[in-house]
Design a protein around this nucleic acid. Sequence first.
DNA 1: GGACGGTCTGGGACCGTTCCCAGCCGTACC
DNA 2: GGTACGGCTGGGAACGGTCCCAGACCGTCC
Lengths: 340, 340
Amino acid sequence: MTRPPDAPRTIKEIAAVAGVSKSTVSRVLNDTPGVSPKARQLVRTAIEQTGYQPNRAARSLVTRATGSIGLVVSEAQARVFSDPFFASMVRGATEVVRPRGVHLVLMLAEDKRARDQLLDYLRHGHVDGVLFISTHAADPLPRILVAERLPAVLSARPVSPLAISYVDVDSVAGAGLAVDHLVERGRRRIATIAGPQDMPAGQDRLRGWTEALALHGLPHGPELVAYGDFDRGSGARAMEELLGRGIEFDGLFVASDLMALDAVAVLREHGLQVPQDVAVVGFDDSDAATQARPALTTVRQPVEEMAKALTLTLLDRIGDPDAPITSRVFPPKLIRRAST
Amino acid sequence: MTRPPDAPRTIKEIAAVAGVSKSTVSRVLNDTPGVSPKARQLVRTAIEQTGYQPNRAARSLVTRATGSIGLVVSEAQARVFSDPFFASMVRGATEVVRPRGVHLVLMLAEDKRARDQLLDYLRHGHVDGVLFISTHAADPLPRILVAERLPAVLSARPVSPLAISYVDVDSVAGAGLAVDHLVERGRRRIATIAGPQDMPAGQDRLRGWTEALALHGLPHGPELVAYGDFDRGSGARAMEELLGRGIEFDGLFVASDLMALDAVAVLREHGLQVPQDVAVVGFDDSDAATQARPALTTVRQPVEEMAKALTLTLLDRIGDPDAPITSRVFPPKLIRRAST
DNA sequence: GGACGGTCTGGGACCGTTCCCAGCCGTACC
DNA sequence: GGTACGGCTGGGAACGGTCCCAGACCGTCC
């Protein structure tokens, strides 16, 4: 396992071992055509035997690329990390990046000062591209990156149209799945706790709820809607508000798991049973949803697959800055559990 | 804000602007003595004006250092990420690393194959050192890194003695704080749900409980102890076990917040009120502890401060491979909430 | 048989730093 | 006044790759 201390460290030494010139070794390393099969094989075995790996710095110096991409976490709070979304995102990105020898550099932009520093940093070519992770709505960073012509991609659809590739889950369809499931379970009056309406995810999930109910010919008036901000705490307030209106409902679709768990707790405090009195469906399929009692029925996004697609898109764009913008919207999946 | 397109990109151009040689510029950049105050100032303003930043690759090539450290996450599950510990760790490390221009490269080692690849990678000098994050007990990676003489530090005390710097919280003292607090609250029969006894944190927290109770002259026999594995789910089993023994207790110290939340749920299912019938103290001060109902009294580790200390230690060691091993144990703090 | 074209090869300039070394200048001392 | 020495400076050789260019070699065609 351990490499002998005199292992070749340079392309020159590999060339000597293989009996070719360093140019040929370089060609083999970069899969450049115009090398005879024999020479190619010679170099390959020499590399194999010696466990040689090219020097990143030397390569960077001439290619002017760093071989690393920034994983920019732009969020005031630590929320992104605790979000299971982040873990899956990292895992997916890592899987794409690892075999290509590209590094994932973690960068935080928690406040304005940090963001300015980061920007200055990115501008100086410390990374070849940026994988942007944010659940935050009005983040100015993506727009700036696009303007700076730095290859970048987004982990969710931006609030306003932007010349940037992103991946997202089909939130409208997801909300539809949730509603269909509740209807199938015999629920006829289905309320919703929606997310903030200045975020695409918030808008789409509400729209999905509305459209699906309309399709079923069921009520979907504003009296059945309360708003939260996706986060813990806001779900409880929204639930109290809904209950305070004195309207009846036997089904509830909540635009995020965290708010849904809040809602379940409040329902319980009011003596209502889940799912007997009110069946509840969340969104995200977070850890908390699995561990809750009762376990939460929810809508899952294929995050890891999305992360892979996103990372590939970024690498494409780095390879060719004029590569077309290719955003992909993934289909969600309903995860049936005890809350419905 | 935007840099003019003709901004100096090399040390040579800065030298021309400042009217000195590139050697002098290099000296100023590296804070090498032997530069006249006048020349130093000249160079400083030239750099200031032009927004010049040295080329990492060129520097790396000659110094044989990469200017980046690996943030190795060695954990089978995504658990590390959802752990608030991770978020604070990253924030602390970032704060230390950013002003020094050092990069944090995120590396996952989820399974054996990934670990082997990672090892190969680390050996080839892709990072200057490793900041190791793991809550897992028997991880072989730290030992290997030490053997490979790669500068590395650990985010917790290793299971068996190892020539490696680490930071940790004083778990014995933390458990003591919890017990003292329960006693102060008038509790006299205090049970515990301990962590796994093959992990330092598990051992120490149990020892702290035992010693504190002994000091107060209160019972601390094995009938008052049940074991879990720190994780969600195991706390419920342990709680059932304690209750099943039919012994009496009015206080409970649980070695992790996640297990504590489980325990509270089980107590409730058995018709017991928290804190009236049983006062409960957890450990970690996780997000979940704040959001629980009732909010959980718990023991907090100063994670961010620990992360900073740890990162500084690593940087020291990178600067001087023979720097002494300096592990630090931080004092915990009791966070009083509604569960006691 | 020579001109030509294609495939493959090797030499060497270059990327932007660091750092060694030689040389400059001014001062202090004999 | 010459020498020694100190602080300060600049030139240039590395570092390990990529890639341009020139040329070797071989087969084909007129």
